[in-house]
Simulated scan of single mutants.
Amino acid sequence: MIPLLICDDSVMARKQLIRALPTDWPVSITQATQGEEGLAAIRQGLGQVVLLDLTMPVMDGYQVLAQLRSEGLLSKVVVVSGDVQEEALRRVQELGALGFIKKPAAPEELRATLIRLGLYHPPAIHEPPQPRAELALKVNFRDALREVSNVAMGRAAALLAKVLKVFVRLPIPNVNLFEVSELHMALLDAQSGQRLSAVCQGFIGDAIAGEALLLFHDSETGDIARLLGWQPQNDTETSEMLLDLASILIGACLSGIAEQIDVRFSQGHPQLLGQHASIEQLIGLNQQRWKQTLAVEISYSLEGHAVHFDLLLLFTEDSLARLTHKIQYLME
C-alpha cells in the first residue's frame, strides 16, 4: 500500500479528493487539516505521495513545500488548490511540486495526472471498485460553503492578478450567520477609524439573492490607480476606477460560486454606496436592506503593496433554504 497524505483544512475538499481517487489505486490514506500536521505525518512515513492545498491556517502549502525541501523529505507532492494564479503555479513548481490541479479536482484529471507522474499504474485486469471508509466524513454546511467560496475566491484572484499584474495573497474565507446588529458590530470592529469607499452589487438567481459589498480603503486608492495605470483627476474618475475594479472582482467571484452550485446569477449594476465615508456612515446607507444575513467575508491583499480589498457576500435570510439545498447536493 502506498502511504497517501491528503492535506487540506476543508473536510469537504478532502472528501471530494478521496471520491476522485482511482478506486483501484492501492493507497492507505492519512488526512491532515493544516501544514504542520501534514509535515508531522510525512516525517512518520505517512506521505510518500501528498495531495496538498495551498491556502491553510497555521502553515500554508507554500511553507510545507519549502520545509520539505529544507529537511530533505522526498514526498511526491501534487498541489490541489483553488489558487489558480499563474504565479502560484510557477512558485509551487519552483518549490518542487510535481503537478498542479485546480479545485474541485475532476476524477479524470486527477487520474491522468497521477498516471503522467508515474504515481499510479492502472492494473492490467480491471477489478470492481472498493468503497473507501473515509467517505463517511461528515461535512457541515459552513465548511462546504467556505470551500465553495474558496474556489470562487481563487478564480477571482487569478483575474485580479492579471489586471493588476501582481500576486494576490488569498485568505481563508469566513462564513457566518449574522443578525443585523452583529454584522454592524463586526464591520465597526474591523474598520474602526478608517475612511472607506464602498461598492455594492445585488445578485439573484434560483431563489438565492443577496448583495456583494466591496470595501476600498481611501489610503490605498492611489496605489490601486498606479497599478491600473490610471491617473484619476477627481472623485468622479476615482469612482469610475473603483466601480470597474469592483465589477471584475465581484463578477468573477459570483460566477465561481454559481458554477459550483449550478445556478445562474443575474447581477445588478455596481453602485457606489459612499466615498470617503466611515463604516458607520456606510452602515447607515444600507441598514434598511440588511436583515439577518449569511455573510461570506474574503479579504484580498496584494503582495508587495499596502493594498487590500474586503469583499462581503451577503445572502438574504430567505435564500438560506435554497442555498442549503444546493450546498447539500455537493456534500452528498
Rank of each mutant, 00 (worst) to 15 (best):
S70N: 11
L196N: 05
R69S: 08
R90N: 01
E127H: 15
E87Y: 13
R132E: 08
G99V: 00
D60H: 11
N176C: 06
A105Q: 05
V64N: 01
V148I: 15
M153S: 08
I172T: 11
P129R: 08
A152R: 12
L73V: 06
L188F: 01
F141G: 09
P107R: 13
V163C: 02
L74T: 12
A161N: 05
I115V: 15
L196T: 07
A161E: 06
G82F: 09
L95P: 09
A161M: 05
S70K: 15
K103I: 07
R195L: 14
E134Q: 14
R142E: 12
A88I: 04
S181F: 04
F100V: 06
E86H: 03
S192H: 15
N176E: 13
V180S: 10
A88G: 02
T113V: 10
R132Q: 11
S181P: 02
P173L: 01
D53R: 02
E147S: 08
S70M: 10
L51H: 06
T55A: 10
I101K: 01
Q67E: 14
N140Q: 10
D83F: 01
G99P: 03
V166Q: 14
L114C: 01
E127A: 15
F178I: 00
D60G: 15
A112P: 04
A106R: 15
A136Y: 03
A152W: 12
V79L: 05
V79K: 09
K76W: 07
L160A: 13
A156W: 02
E71Y: 03
V84R: 12
Y62G: 05
R155Q: 14
A106D: 14
Y62Q: 10
G118K: 01
H121R: 14
N176Y: 08
S149V: 05
E127I: 12
L114V: 01
E127W: 10
V80S: 06
N176F: 14
A144P: 02
Q130N: 07
R90S: 01
S181Q: 13
L164P: 04
Q194M: 09
A186P: 03
K102N: 12
A161R: 09
G118F: 03
E147N: 11
P128Q: 11
I101D: 00
L52F: 07
E86W: 00
R90F: 03
P122L: 09
P123K: 13
T55K: 08
G118R: 04
Q194D: 07
N174C: 07
E108T: 11
V168T: 12
F100Q: 09
